[in-house]
Simulated assay, not measured.
Amino acid sequence: MDRIQLPPTDRSPRVDFDFASGSLSMRGESYPEDAAAFYGPLLQSLRSFLSASDPRPIVFEVGLAYFNSSSAKALMNLFMPLEDAAAEGRPVTIRWVYADGDDTIEEAGEDFAADFDHARFEMVREARA
């Protein structure tokens, strides 16, 4: 699969889905005008990647300083195929990165983490810049 690299914009995060290494990341803020249009191709590519019989571990690092409700739904749509892959035995780690003291983003990560039984969900606190 081709690597997906999208630069950040004022309303969307930097995306780097390096399927060859199993390293996926999103950083920045997420409140695109059309979340389905932004996240839809990412979800489609992720599903295609997961449907291959490649057992390589996956690490998905999400470091969003802000996201709106439509982005939260899109994130869950990305997370669920990863949880399914983990349930089938594939090593999957989701790293939720939040700034020290950002209780809102930390709590959002804890809410997402509660929906996972098979994928490893790590809460990663970073010092504020």
Score class of each variant (00 low, 15 high):
2 D>V: 15
3 R>C: 06
3 R>H: 13
3 R>Q: 13
3 R>S: 05
4 I>Y: 02
6 L>N: 07
6 L>K: 13
7 P>W: 01
7 P>L: 12
8 P>C: 01
8 P>A: 09
9 T>Y: 08
9 T>G: 15
11 R>Y: 13
11 R>A: 13
11 R>C: 08
12 S>R: 00
13 P>K: 04
13 P>F: 04
14 R>K: 12
14 R>T: 11
16 D>F: 02
19 F>N: 02
25 S>L: 10
25 S>T: 08
27 R>N: 12
28 G>W: 07
28 G>R: 05
30 S>R: 05
31 Y>R: 14
32 P>M: 03
33 E>G: 15
33 E>L: 11
33 E>M: 02
34 D>H: 04
35 A>R: 02
36 A>M: 08
37 A>E: 13
37 A>D: 13
39 Y>T: 10
41 P>G: 06
46 L>R: 08
48 S>Q: 14
48 S>Y: 06
49 F>R: 10
49 F>E: 15
49 F>N: 10
51 S>M: 10
52 A>G: 14
55 P>D: 15
55 P>N: 09
55 P>G: 08
56 R>P: 11
57 P>T: 02
59 V>Q: 14
59 V>F: 00
59 V>E: 15
61 E>N: 04
61 E>K: 05
62 V>R: 00
63 G>L: 05
65 A>F: 10
66 Y>L: 01
66 Y>D: 13
67 F>V: 07
68 N>M: 06
69 S>I: 07
70 S>L: 07
71 S>C: 07
72 A>W: 02
72 A>D: 05
75 L>E: 07
75 L>D: 08
75 L>I: 14
82 L>A: 07
83 E>C: 09
83 E>P: 11
84 D>L: 07
84 D>W: 01
85 A>W: 06
89 G>E: 10
89 G>K: 01
91 P>W: 04
92 V>L: 04
95 R>F: 02
96 W>T: 09
98 Y>L: 06
98 Y>I: 09
99 A>V: 15
99 A>T: 15
100 D>P: 00
101 G>T: 07
102 D>G: 07
102 D>R: 08
102 D>L: 02
105 I>F: 04
107 E>M: 12
108 A>N: 12
109 G>H: 05
110 E>K: 15
112 F>N: 05
113 A>R: 08
113 A>C: 09
113 A>D: 10
114 A>I: 04
115 D>Q: 11
115 D>N: 12
116 F>E: 01
117 D>K: 03
118 H>T: 06
119 A>L: 06
120 R>P: 04
120 R>N: 11
121 F>Q: 03
121 F>I: 04
121 F>K: 04
121 F>E: 01
123 M>Q: 14
123 M>Y: 01
125 R>P: 01
126 E>C: 11
126 E>W: 06
127 A>N: 10
127 A>K: 11
